[in-house]
Design a protein around this nucleic acid. Structure first.
Lengths: 195, 195
DNA sequence: CATCTTATACTGATCGTTCTATCTATTCCA
DNA sequence: TGGAATAGATAGAACGATCAGTATAAGATG
């Protein structure tokens, strides 16, 4: 990919993260990236598509970073713990400013599919991934329901970590997740009929 | 309060809820409210203050609505259940479009205190309220930690309910909350030394 | 030669905000 | 009861700034 296009995405990601999508104008991205106006419009039909590209990039980066943190050979619980730990480390990052997908959803709603689709896909992918981990210990239906709860915990933790500038919410979220998982496993194993 | 001011807040609330804060211009609020330009600027120094007033109003409305749903004489668990049920009913509302406080935080971050303070105050109030309920059954420190988890669950459920257009996340969130509370109560009562 | 990037000027629209001048309703005093 | 004073609301023009996007032509790189 063109280095100019790369830099546009990188600078746009930084600016959008710090100030939001609407408040950051094309002009600012251009001057901060040191790129000419027409170069942007040669690579992207419009600002919407730049936003979309930023979210796409972010999606792949995050998934790659997450997968690198999760040892596929370890137990399901260990893998889930790694996901929550990844979030805590992320929250503690100085540049942490919430989840870009959530903020895109908050600013644009679900009316701009080009933008919101990535955000929703991210949620679905995470839920499915965690669901797969849980299915090694739990019946499918239970695992799916539990995964949706884990997503709620991760999303809620991300929101509150930003609002309170407090990375430790991830620890409490993981504590809650562990309690729920343990309870469900205990219920299932003590009552094999549920399998 | 002046009826014109009232209507400005009402119309602005509706438009902000449906489209976000940045995309809705002053002109649109004025024309939709049938109010003259200068009338707005006589009541509010600027758009920021109108947003702030909208959030303030929302804060008081929500707290009043919540308090009306929570029977003060019933048990702590019943009160908490009522809070989660209130959220589920809210999610199922046709005009539900996420939490306006969260969306204000997402759009403006914590750099505009006039706007973000209300959002953060709402979170703190909710946490303290739920913490007080839990303190009737649990030691203070445990109750505080648990309340922060309940807030995570409520915030996460609100986010996901909007993203997936699915009000039932509230039910799963409450199931998780119940599990965590039960476990904590069992732990405390079986080990009085923790009191 | 061809492709990419550059700079600059420009479009038409919209942004939040201010100004002016007129209109309407209430209030207060004679 | 009548008339002036006051306050609030009105319409509409205009402000300078910024918005996303386009046009054009020269410069760079291979």
């Amino acid at each position: 990919m063109s280095p100019k296009k790369e830099q546009l995405i990188a600078v746009a990601t930084d600016l959008f993260s710090r100030h939001g999508f609407h408040p950051v104008g094309v002009d600012r991205i251009l001057s901060e990236a040191g790129v000419a106006r027409m170069t942007l419009y040669n690579h992207f039909p419009g600002k919407d598509d730049l936003i979309s590209a930023v979210l796409d990039r972010r999606y792949h980066d995050i998934m790659a970073s997450l997968r690198a943190c999760v040892e596929p050979t370890s137990s399901a619980r260990e893998q889930l713990r790694a996901i929550f730990a990844w979030h805590e480390a992320w929250f503690a990052t100085p540049e942490f400013s919430g989840c870009l997908f959530e903020r895109a959803l908050a600013e644009f709603g679900t009316d701009y599919p080009k933008i919101s689709d990535v955000a929703i896909q991210y949620k679905k992918t995470m839920t499915a991934w965690m669901g797969d981990m849980l299915k090694t210990h739990l019946p499918e239906q239970t695992a799916t329901r539990l995964a949706s709860i884990l997503l709620i915990l991760l999303d809620g933790a991300t929101i509150d970590a930003r609002a309170f500038h407090d990375p430790t919410v991830a620890t409490r979220a993981w504590g809650a997740a562990e309690a729920i998982i343990e309870r469900e496993i205990a219920l299932t194993s003590s009552n094999p009929a549920r399998r």
